[in-house]
Each structure stands twice: as structure tokens, then as C-alpha cells.
Amino acid sequence: MRAIIYLAALSIILSLSGCITLDAGPADRPSSADDSLNDRDWALVWADEFDGNTLDRTKWAPEVSCWGGGNQERQCYVDRLENVRVEDGYLRLKAVPGEHSGPSVHMEHPDYPGETVRQPYTSGKVRTRDLASWTYGRIEGRIKLPTGQGAWPAFWMMPQSSVYGGWPLSGEIDIMEAVNLGARCDDCVGTSQENRSSGAIHFGQRSPNNRYVDKRRPLAAQAGQAGIPRDQFHIYAVEWGEGRIDWFVDGERFYSVSSDQWFTDTVSKSDDPNAPFNQDFYVMLNFAVGGAWPEGANEGGIDASTFPAEMVVDYVRVYQCRQDPDTGRACMAADI
């Protein structure tokens, strides 16, 4: 929860960027899992602490669609309080069983809303698209994840303008994804239950020749929980600079990718070695139900007893490098 003292230059940075200065918050809210942020000169430029009891629609826009995310997901994303609400200082995205009808294509599709389709669940997804986006920085969120076979929460980024073309030519940055937490896991280390989150990027050629790289990381469990990260928050973050992206959980860097590991089919590496991850990206939070990945993993399918369930978000914060805003590299941790 929010730091009491901000960097002296923060108000200048916020005014230049058009962002809104934050009010003071509860003293017990952790400033970050990474105590070196100030030492490394990361400056807070945007945040939502989810104080109050309404979603700040100057920062977030809920998605309304039933298209399944291109992954055969089973939810309709809806804009209603049962699924998207701010309460007691948290954003709550709730997946609820019950059939619902809605748009068959995503909101940026030229034919939106398209035909009407039905899905067996409703859930919540919010985005900063057209409201706030950034090139390079540290993006972090403190989140409590839902458990159960078929649960698929995510904290991720997509390009604001897709300057290199449609997905995945303009890239995708997955800060955190987790599927089927608590379900049976035959390849988890030290536990028989799924306990991993992951970080990834997507890029390359158009589907089905798209590419991605990723890494999964076990989440620490509280005593007596047998490896299930139930009822606890973790801080998920990326530090993204020119030619490099690092992933963190609770302040520990567990993955790093450099520009020699990504490309886009529309620009040669010699012309622009950092494409497509050198443009403005916006932030999203969502709670998907089912889909090809979770339904094909662990125990398989969807366990109906998992739902209703919630993804709970304490805050989202965006930092940019004060001494090196053009590339962000000066504020990033040393190379792995």
C-alpha cells in the first residue's frame, strides 16, 4: 500500500506527463517488494491504489466481449458490479457461473460487436487502453490470485497502436499469468499441487507461426498450505528497457529476455533490433475462465466448484527512469 514519501521530482514528472498526483494512503500498504527502486532512480509516474469504492474510469475501461480471447475461453467480460468492483481499497475481478450473451469479437475489431454469442461464465477485465500507455518503465501490481482448475488470472500489456501490425507482430508482454493454481501438478517441484506463475512475451510472425518465450516460477506458500498460494498477495513486476525485459515476483528477478531473443516479421533486425518492444503499451488485468491452456493442463477441463472466485488487486504502479527516460536502461538491475 502507498508510500508516504514520494520522490521530490515526482510532481514535476507527473505534470509533464499529464498524470494525476496521488493522495496519501494507508500507512500499512507496502511501498514495493523492491527496496532498491529509489536507489536505482525509478520515479513513480502513474498509479491506482484502488482506494474508495468506485472504479476510476479516467484510468481504467472495462472490456465488454464474449469472444473468448482467441483461446476458447468460457467467459463473457461484462461491465457490472458483480464482476468488476472496487471495494475496501481493492479491485475485485470476479468470475461467476451463469450463461450470458454478448459480442462475438473483441472491442477493437472493425465489426464489433458482431454477432451475439453465449458463454457459461461472466468475469471482469479492465484496461488502460486509450487512457494511459508507456514505452519503457517498471510496471508492478500487488495481486492475490484465485485457485482452482480452470482459473486463469493475468496482468499483462498490449501495444496501444500496434505500429508493426496485428497480434503478435506488435508484441505482447505478460507480466503475470497463472493457471489452475492448487490443482494436481505432476511436474511441480516439491509439491503435488500447481503453484506457479509465469512471465512471457509474444512476438514474431502471424499465427499459427507466432512465437513466444516464457518462464514459470513457484510462488511461496504460507505455512500449512502445501504449496498453494491461497489467500496471500504477491507483487508481480516487469522492468522494461531498450532491448531488455526483466520479470520479478516479490522483488526477486527470475527471468530476463534481451532483443536478440525477439523479432517482428514486419521489420528487419538490422533496421530496428528492438522492435516490436519499443512502442507504447497499455496495461490490462483480467480473470479468464478456461481456455486452451488451463483446460489442457493439470487435471484438465474446468472444475465447476472453483467458481465463483475472485482476483484481488491491491494496486498497480508505473515507474519510469528519471535519469534515462528515453531507454530506461540506467535504472534496471545489473544484467543476469
Rank of each mutant, 00 (worst) to 15 (best):
residue 78 V to K: 00
residue 63 E to N: 12
residue 89 G to T: 05
residue 83 N to H: 11
residue 95 A to L: 10
residue 88 D to Q: 15
residue 100 H to Q: 11
residue 65 S to I: 05
residue 87 E to V: 15
residue 79 D to H: 13
residue 77 Y to E: 05
residue 79 D to L: 13
residue 68 G to P: 01
residue 65 S to P: 00
residue 62 P to T: 15
residue 59 K to A: 04
residue 75 Q to K: 04
residue 62 P to V: 15
residue 86 V to M: 10
residue 96 V to T: 14
residue 62 P to Y: 13
residue 89 G to F: 06
residue 60 W to H: 07
residue 70 G to S: 08
residue 80 R to S: 14
residue 72 Q to R: 01
residue 68 G to V: 04
residue 67 W to Y: 10
residue 61 A to Q: 14
residue 89 G to C: 09
residue 73 E to A: 08
residue 66 C to K: 01
residue 65 S to N: 14
residue 84 V to A: 14
residue 78 V to E: 06
residue 91 L to K: 02
residue 91 L to N: 02
residue 86 V to E: 09
residue 68 G to L: 00
residue 72 Q to N: 15
residue 98 G to C: 00
residue 59 K to R: 15
residue 86 V to S: 04
residue 93 L to N: 09
residue 78 V to G: 06
residue 76 C to H: 07
residue 95 A to I: 07
residue 63 E to W: 05
residue 65 S to H: 07
residue 76 C to R: 03
residue 77 Y to L: 08
residue 60 W to E: 04
residue 59 K to V: 03
residue 75 Q to A: 08
residue 97 P to S: 09
residue 88 D to I: 07
residue 59 K to W: 05
residue 89 G to Y: 05
residue 87 E to M: 12
residue 64 V to I: 15
residue 93 L to E: 01
residue 100 H to P: 00
residue 70 G to I: 02
residue 74 R to Y: 10
residue 101 S to T: 14
residue 78 V to S: 00
residue 87 E to F: 14
residue 84 V to P: 13
residue 94 K to M: 10
residue 66 C to H: 00
residue 69 G to D: 05
residue 88 D to A: 15
residue 60 W to D: 08
residue 70 G to P: 01
residue 86 V to T: 11
residue 63 E to I: 11
residue 81 L to F: 12
residue 82 E to M: 06
residue 69 G to Y: 00
residue 61 A to S: 12
residue 97 P to R: 09
residue 85 R to L: 06
residue 101 S to L: 05
residue 88 D to M: 10
residue 85 R to A: 09
residue 92 R to D: 02
residue 101 S to Y: 05
residue 60 W to Y: 07
residue 93 L to A: 01
residue 90 Y to Q: 13
residue 91 L to Y: 09
residue 69 G to R: 01
residue 64 V to N: 11
residue 78 V to T: 14
residue 89 G to W: 03
residue 59 K to S: 05
residue 87 E to L: 13
residue 84 V to Y: 13
residue 68 G to W: 00
residue 60 W to I: 07
residue 87 E to S: 15
residue 65 S to W: 07
residue 74 R to N: 10
residue 93 L to I: 13
residue 92 R to Y: 13
residue 95 A to Q: 04
residue 80 R to Q: 12
residue 80 R to H: 11
residue 71 N to A: 14
residue 69 G to M: 01
residue 100 H to A: 10
residue 97 P to T: 04
residue 92 R to I: 15
residue 71 N to Y: 00
residue 69 G to E: 00
residue 77 Y to W: 07
residue 66 C to T: 03
residue 92 R to V: 15
residue 69 G to A: 01
residue 65 S to C: 09
residue 99 E to P: 12
residue 84 V to E: 12
residue 67 W to I: 02
residue 89 G to H: 04
residue 95 A to R: 06
residue 74 R to D: 06
residue 74 R to Q: 11
residue 70 G to E: 10
residue 69 G to V: 03
residue 86 V to K: 06
residue 77 Y to R: 04
residue 76 C to L: 02
residue 66 C to W: 02
residue 61 A to G: 09
residue 81 L to G: 13
residue 85 R to D: 03
residue 66 C to R: 01
